[in-house]
Simulated scan of single mutants.
Amino acid sequence: MASLEIRNVCKSYGSVDVLKSINIAINHGDFLVLVGPSGCGKSTLLSMIAGLDEITSGELVIDGEVVNDKHPSQRDIAMVFQSYALYPNMSVEKNIAFGLEMRGVPKAERDKKVESVSQMLQIGPLLKRKPAQLSGGQRQRVAMGRALVREPKIFLFDEPLSNLDAKLRVDMRTEIKKLHQRLGATIVYVTHDQIEAMTLATRIAIMKAGILQQLGTPQEVYDTPNNVFVASFMGSPSMNLIPATVVAHQNSVAARLTSPQGNELILPLPQPERYQTWIDKPVILGIRPEAITDMSSAEPNNPWVFPADCQVDVTEPTGADVYVLTTLGGKEIVARMRSNCGAVVGQKTPFAFNMAKAVLFDPQTENRI
């Protein structure tokens, strides 16, 4: 296990800045997920940690040692690629042991480590097969085994599940989670899938256009996103973002929203002192779908739950729940309700807004207020 610090790291290709002053620090045993849309620079950052790509400026520090100029082989890092990168002419056993053999590890020790890793990943019966005889999930396990057998300081995963079908992705995600809990290893994991990020990470770094938008625990980035981009990127369905105005209301402050019919909806805000300077100014109200529900599902003793009758535009049953869509502030919003809540398209139904879960954003900067 190892700590990792990324200090003011920049990467440029000619005049094009791919990464801009990235600062990230994680402790021994952390599971850091780099997440963001395609082209945001997350795979480039992973390549620089591995030593496969040069850093333009800044420092990369592993266990207190700057490793910018160290060759990949000297960084004690193992990488699992999206494409598995297995040797097609070698058996599973030889694929796993190959790195150890190149390092001069005695055969008896190699065999012992391969046996241990194959049991851990449940690939013992596959050791004599060639990669072409394996399924996608099995190949990914072998690629993980090849990394695990080396016992490196840091594991790097580059979108390892993107080639798998949906069910297998969920299964492998669980296996990787169990593996991290068992080993306590330091892991840096790249994905564009925010559900993978939320379920696997102890720390999430959300990136956009080469800039780090937020670094925090899954709960922090979900509940208190730094800006509109993080709010909309993390969560499925994403956070509702509704144009509103902060108004004085009953010796406190509230968010005022409008419906398509021109009706006003006044929703009181917690921490009124925070928004005093925003009275009569436009804001963006952010609230997650699960914080808007039917009255029976709302927290009965929560003083920040407020009812409002809204017209149902669409219902989307998902089994245990139903997503109910309505329109506020000129925006379509999503509420998560019980499947038997009784919402009927074209009719009004009571919505319960949990304003304790609401956040406000500046519409100009799009940063959280």
Rank of each mutant, 00 (worst) to 15 (best):
R256A: 13
K128T: 12
S73E: 14
S135H: 08
S135V: 03
T293L: 04
E101W: 12
T224I: 09
E366Q: 15
I49A: 05
F98N: 10
D193K: 06
S259I: 10
V322P: 00
P72A: 12
D165P: 03
Q119V: 03
S252G: 10
P300A: 14
I62L: 11
F351M: 08
N163W: 01
R169G: 02
L200D: 03
A197V: 01
I266N: 05
T56M: 07
Q271S: 15
L267H: 04
L52R: 10
P237G: 03
K348R: 15
H180F: 06
K107Q: 14
N354M: 08
Q347S: 15
G330I: 10
L134N: 04
M79Y: 08
T365V: 00
P106W: 08
Q194S: 07
Q194W: 00
N89W: 11
T202D: 06
P268Y: 07
P243E: 15
A248I: 01
G64Y: 15
T245P: 05
D309H: 14
F31K: 09
R288E: 00
V149S: 05
H28D: 12
G14D: 09
Q181Y: 06
N251C: 01
G286V: 02
V9E: 11
Q140C: 03
A132V: 12
D294T: 10
I77H: 13
S238R: 10
T44I: 02
E54Y: 15
P289C: 06
C40I: 01
Y189W: 14
V188F: 08
N227R: 08
L126T: 04
V188M: 11
